[in-house]
C-alpha cells in the first residue's frame, strides 16, 4: 500500500471516529432529557431519574473531545494565530510550519507516552472510580494516550502534506465562535 493510500485510509478512520462523536452528542441530548423526564414524571414505577446520567455525560464529553481531536487536525480546524505566518515571506512561513509541526509531534508523542503510563499505573494499582457506577479508572484514562497516538500519526501525515505542498504557510482555521 502506498503512503498516499495509507493516508487516505487513515483519514477514513478519523471520519469514523468523528461519526462516533456525533452519535455521542445525540445520545447525550436524549439521555439528559430522559433523566429530567423520568425525575419529574413518575411513568416507570420505581425509576426516579437516571442517577448515573450526570457522570455518563461527563465521560461522553471527554470522549467527544478525544474522538474529534485527530479528525479536526486532519481538517486543519484546530484554530491558530497566523498573523506572523502571513507577515513573513512564504518560504519563511513554510519553515515556521515545519518548526511547529515538529513541536506538535513531540508534544503529542510525549502526552501519549505519559498518558499510557498513567493508565497503566492505574490498571496495575487496581484503581476504581466509585460513583453511582463503579468502573475501573483505566477505562477512561486509556482513551487519552490512544487519542494522542492518533494525533501523533496525523502530525506525521500533516508533515508529509507540508513537504509535498506549496512552499508557503497552510490555510488553517484561525478562530472559534
Amino acid at each position: 500500500m502506498s503512503i498516499a493510500a495509507l493516508e487516505a485510509a487513515y483519514g477514513k478512520a478519523l471520519d469514523a471516529l468523528a461519526l462516533v462523536a456525533c452519535a455521542l452528542i445525540f445520545a447525550l441530548t436524549l439521555m439528559i432529557c430522559a433523566d429530567v423526564f423520568l425525575r419529574n414524571v413518575r411513568i416507570v414505577p420505581g425509576t426516579v431519574g437516571l442517577a448515573w446520567s450526570n457522570e455518563v455525560s461527563e465521560a461522553m464529553l471527554y470522549l467527544v473531545t478525544m474522538l474529534t481531536a485527530p479528525w479536526l487536525l486532519r481538517r486543519g480546524q484546530h484554530i491558530r494565530v497566523d498573523i506572523v505566518l502571513r507577515a513573513v515571506p512564504p518560504r519563511v512561513g513554510w519553515a515556521f510550519e515545519w518548526a511547529v509541526d515538529a513541536l506538535g509531534l513531540a508534544c503529542c508523542a510525549a502526552i501519549a507516552y505519559y498518558g499510557a503510563r498513567a493508565a497503566l499505573a492505574s490498571y496495575a494499582a487496581g484503581s476504581i472510580s466509585i460513583k453511582t457506577l463503579i468502573t475501573p479508572e483505566w477505562w477512561l484514562l486509556s482513551v487519552l494516550p490512544a487519542a494522542f497516538l492518533a494525533l501523533s500519526l496525523e502530525m506525521l501525515f500533516r508533515m508529509r502534506r507540508l513537504y509535498l505542498g506549496e512552499r508557503a504557510p497552510r490555510d488553517d482555521a484561525v478562530s472559534t465562535g
Binding site: L61, T65, T176
Partner: peptide, 12 residues
Amino acid sequence: TAAISGMILFII
C-alpha cells in the same frame, strides 16, 4: 456541532 465543540473542548 462535533467540529466546533471538539475544537473548543480540546483547547479547554
